[in-house]
Design a protein around this nucleic acid. Structure first.
Lengths: 160, 160
DNA sequence: GCAACTGTAACTATATTGGTTACAGACGAT
DNA sequence: ATCGTCTGTAACCAATATAGTTACAGTTGC
């Protein structure tokens, strides 16, 4: 289907910010956790800022943090911020208007695709970033105990 | 999101065959309705045949038709036949293993993506090709009355 | 045997995403 | 005031996936 990883990355980014608990994160830092280039992260942060999910500050000691509480941000908000179109597309070129099926299949397909999109959206609307952090916690309990050994390799911690 | 039109085209193709009512359709004919190249259609027909949704016959007077009754083919069958992966993807490169969020976000995201995929699948499982044809019928009533004027421009009709 | 099909390989075109470098502008610290 | 540290953004390249095209071998009915 060739879907992008944009949604996954965006959820990752906002989860980091919720984890950092209002401490502004630098794009370089986030990029390290996501394992990509800082510009890719900054591009995404701009989109997330346009959708009022994060706020960024330029200059020294700048960075980005959540614009609202983690429980006020749903995965649907994130999905709509970073994924432009719906789950499926219609034909690349419009079908033959002279065929009884071709001329009307688009209408029927649109109904179906709407049903699919609605189903996806209702799943995403019921999960918040806070939920994601909560689901993360049990997994992390072991990781946290290891954090002290790892030292500076940890990417997210208080005050960087 | 860059989704493909494969699903839309596949539904279109199978709908044509249901419409043609067991009359084998030539790939050239189908391509005319879909408004694409016949090879694109034949490639897709191969995939649909592997999933036992259509049967094709080579040689003169050959063509493809549904392998089962239209009410026995769901959009989920079609989706699984032509779309390889789920709706979303995870990170292109795995996140940083040394970050408490990065190391575990994949697990949580997979849970979410599974929920989404399940929702999509349950919508698609409840719609059959027969349903699509039924939904098409009301739209077509006008088109059908125009068909006789159009004459040979119509793409699908009995015995071509 | 011939004409009409499918199946498939090989190649090109196009689009999208992601990665990279580079740099202008913002801003805190001194 | 200026310096170092950030963000925002443009410009470009690489990788990938889909779609379109040509060509041809193999199958089958007549």
């Amino acid at each position: 289907m060739s879907t992008s990883s944009r949604f996954a990355v965006a959820v990752h980014v906002l989860t980091l910010m919720a984890w950092a608990d209002d401490e502004p994160l630098k794009s370089e830092h986030v990029a390290e956790s996501v394992n990509t280039n800082a510009v890719v992260i900054r591009r995404m942060l701009c989109e997330l800022a346009e959708s009022k999910l994060v706020v960024s500050q330029s200059g020294a000691m700048g960075g980005s943090k959540l614009a609202r509480e983690p429980e006020q941000i749903t995965l649907l908000d994130i999905y709509q911020a970073v994924e432009s179109r719906g789950v499926f597309s219609l034909h690349r070129h419009p079908p033959n208007r002279h065929c009884p099926v071709g001329v009307n299949i688009g209408t029927v397909l649109n109904q179906v695709l709407d049903e699919v999109d609605t189903a996806v959206e209702s799943v995403l609307a019921n999960i918040t970033i806070k939920d994601v952090v909560s689901r993360l916690q049990p997994c992390v309990s072991t990781a946290v105990s290891k954090r002290k050994q790892v030292g500076k390799e940890q990417v997210v911690a208080a005050g960087n």
